[in-house]
Design a protein around this nucleic acid. Structure first.
Lengths: 230, 230
DNA sequence: CCGCTAACGTCAATGGTGTTGACATAAGCC
DNA sequence: GGCTTATGTCAACACCATTGACGTTAGCGG
């Protein structure tokens, strides 16, 4: 029994504890729980508890936990594009769009981990794709070239979002422990056996918290621009 | 009680069903189970069943399921580098190394999904890092530049591996269903509301199964080479 | 304003999961 | 050949997603 589509909802019975459930309320609560309890901390039972409702009530709104996860992903894309306006400079527009998507995911690293490499096919995801393809069109890309650049752009953005989210998603305590352990293993390798790691270790420790996405994005855009001129 | 390190093992009591457990045997069996039952199909109980042992026996070898997952990741890197020989051409070496890592992960997509954005700090991962830094050193990169290129190279490789693994990991049946559903939503959007998607849909469907990694890798190497000359 | 219907919240149960502590057995050192 | 202890086994715990039956109440048709 698939859940009722949001448009067809009419009756809203308050929960035993008084809250009135909504598609959006559930997504928002799930996002909060992910931030509080980590990527593995989103469970139907805990979600029900946080909502003040029976866990199974969630299934009136989503086909299952996986469906909820896809909705969360679509919400992240929604937030990324909210309020964005094109400047007309295709290169600048793609850069700001990529940066926005990357930033929106990293704002909810635990959620990003779950959703960044999923394709939801939901409304906001579709809107984003249409926007990107539109920008490429105005830039002058047509046919296969447009498809290729689109593909590289969106995959690179989402791939880095997922990767960067993974390190951000570690709880503060575990994250320090992780960095500490990094120092404990990599930074302590003897120069005799691992000369290059030993030499680069201090620099790498310093770099670890930053994302390589901006640099990679610049390279991609430069490559695309060069192709346009040719 | 942390498990006994592999080097300190002496007694090996055969299981009730006759098999003799090993660190490597468990990793290999887990890899097989991942291929058979999907990324979510790796469970302690099923692993025990497949090994012909009690599920809890695994805990004599790994601190937990997560520890096992890290070991699987290290094994993937091991396979990626196995037999690799440098040519001396740094650009070619980095390209072949990146391609090998990407290919090794995609050979076990279900395992890649679990491990590609983890840092294990284990021996083969360390060996790979030392190799990459060594190549960059012979190329002439020093200090911060070497660290920056290393960071971009390894993150891009792993990020694309994770992303590409996600689509490959879908079971054949679900994968066709997914592509079908893609056609059903994206390819059917009316040109009136989504003109660019409607125009690009056939090309995008054709591209979907390929990875954007080779193109992205080329861009990265070209950018690095340009930086060297400057 | 009333009554009917079905949407939706609740309950209970099923079969899965990781993990752990106590126990037993046999491997291999002395 | 006996002792120690590593290691396999067993049973139990607490959690998980999901589902079918149940009952209540919101809100429409009259």
């Amino acid at each position: 029994m698939p859940p009722t589509p949001e448009s067809a909802r009419r009756r809203r019975r308050p929960t035993k504890q008084g809250t009135v459930l909504t598609h959006d309320l559930i997504v928002a609560t799930a996002l909060r729980m992910l931030a509080e309890h980590g990527a593995a901390g989103l469970s139907a039972r805990r979600l029900g508890l946080a909502l003040g409702a029976d866990p199974s009530a969630v299934y009136r709104y989503f086909a299952g936990m996986d469906d909820l996860v896809l909705a969360i992903g679509d919400e992240l894309i929604h937030r990324a594009l909210d309020g964005w306006e094109p400047t007309g400079d295709w290169c600048e527009d793609l850069r700001s769009l990529g940066t926005r998507i990357h930033r929106a995911y990293l704002a909810h690293p635990q959620a990003a981990q779950l959703t960044a490499n999923r394709v939801s096919g939901r409304s906001h995801e579709i809107a984003a794709d249409e926007t990107i393809l539109g920008i490429l069109h105005t830039a002058g890309f047509r046919g296969a070239a447009a498809a290729r650049v689109y593909h590289a752009f969106i995959d690179q953005t989402l791939a880095f979002a997922a990767l960067d989210a993974a390190s951000l998603a570690l709880p503060d305590q575990a994250r320090e422990a992780d960095e500490q352990q990094w120092r404990a293993t990599y930074a302590r390798l003897p120069a005799a056996t691992h000369p290059h790691i030993a030499a680069a270790a201090p620099l790498l420790v310093a770099r670890m918290n930053d994302s390589a996405y901006p640099a990679a994005l610049d390279l991609l855009l430069a490559g695309a621009a060069a192709e346009l001129e040719a």
